[in-house]
Write a protein that binds this DNA or RNA. Sequence first.
DNA 1: CGAAATATTGCGCGCCGCGCAAAAAGTCTG
DNA 2: CAGACTTTTTGCGCGGCGCGCAATATTTCG
Lengths: 201, 201
Amino acid sequence: MGLRERKKLAARAALSWAALRLAMEHGPENVRVEQIAAEAGVSPRTFNNYFSSKEEAICAIGLDRQERVRAALLERPAEEPLWEAVITSVLEQYEGEPDREMVARVRMQMCHPSLQGEHLKARAEIERVLAEGIAERIGTDIRSDMYPSLVAAAVSSATRVAMNHWLNSEPPAELLSTLTEALRSLAAGLPQPPRRKKPSC
Amino acid sequence: MGLRERKKLAARAALSWAALRLAMEHGPENVRVEQIAAEAGVSPRTFNNYFSSKEEAICAIGLDRQERVRAALLERPAEEPLWEAVITSVLEQYEGEPDREMVARVRMQMCHPSLQGEHLKARAEIERVLAEGIAERIGTDIRSDMYPSLVAAAVSSATRVAMNHWLNSEPPAELLSTLTEALRSLAAGLPQPPRRKKPSC
DNA sequence: CGAAATATTGCGCGCCGCGCAAAAAGTCTG
DNA sequence: CAGACTTTTTGCGCGGCGCGCAATATTTCG
């Protein structure tokens, strides 16, 4: 990779990180594009060569997670059932103790109205890549077969629901177990509602 | 309901429809808020009392679908299994031949970058209402039990994937059968990839 | 090095979201 | 219906944004 491309990647990352940091510190509404550009060391005009809005920049962090999940998936042993491989690949992205920083970030991205749209767009992108990975693994293609996209969408949704539940859980739950529960429920088949700790009656 | 509230609803609907119509005719990028307001018979300033962007107005159509699905769900016989009730309630919203108009509308909302975010936000809202309906039906609540949200998310995702597949299908597929296939796959349990017409090898 | 390719920057324009306060419209009570 | 109230609409104005354009700087390649 030449100097040119490296600098572009660096600039993009710098802008994205700067956007996130400032948004975390002052709230997304109180961040000017001007500041982000300044913190990344480029002109305000250049910002828009990389992102078409500050919201996009803020949510672009973690878009590289898509490639990590995909890579993890393709490295799972071929004899492992698809579903196991997918669940494992997703879960291992969330290993380690979630720090206060991450909680605040996820909460901001998922709850702040001005970021929701972009956040969901980012999720959709991740979902697409995951679907491609699944298709590659089982030897189909996305265009003709809905199955990979369905699996990817289900996993993505379960992850989203679990994170949302985790964020609002009182008392605070564990992230990994919440995620696992959601994915396992899905795997077990949703039609049979699992009886849980808090049954209705 | 007093005159006041009726007028508000009417104004909101008028703005939303005007926004959609103009976006369909000229493309979302070429619509000014001014035009939308004019077509709805209010001042431009008033537009922003109802919607915070034209994208939001465009995607707000069909947000009432949420209530229809919910109502349909709650009217299903109580002895029917949840999953059947949900699938039926969703599918019956899509009965009838999809006209050319609808195809174009869905395609615009799902594919046009400037609308994707808002469209996904709208879906999330529908999903929330659906989850509440499910919770109400099985007698749980959303806060403590992830299950209703999981089901709602799964259904919503399957619907989205199916519509996307349907839009890009070549040759054109039937909407209802595509939707049914997606929802049934989910019901059957995703872990076992169903062997289909187009197996990979 | 020198030329071609590509990225950055400054400038400027039209549009947008929204706060504010005045005016208009609907509501309620006697 | 009068008149006081609540709520909505509207005009005005400001700061910010997204982007096209053309000039400039930087990287690439022969």
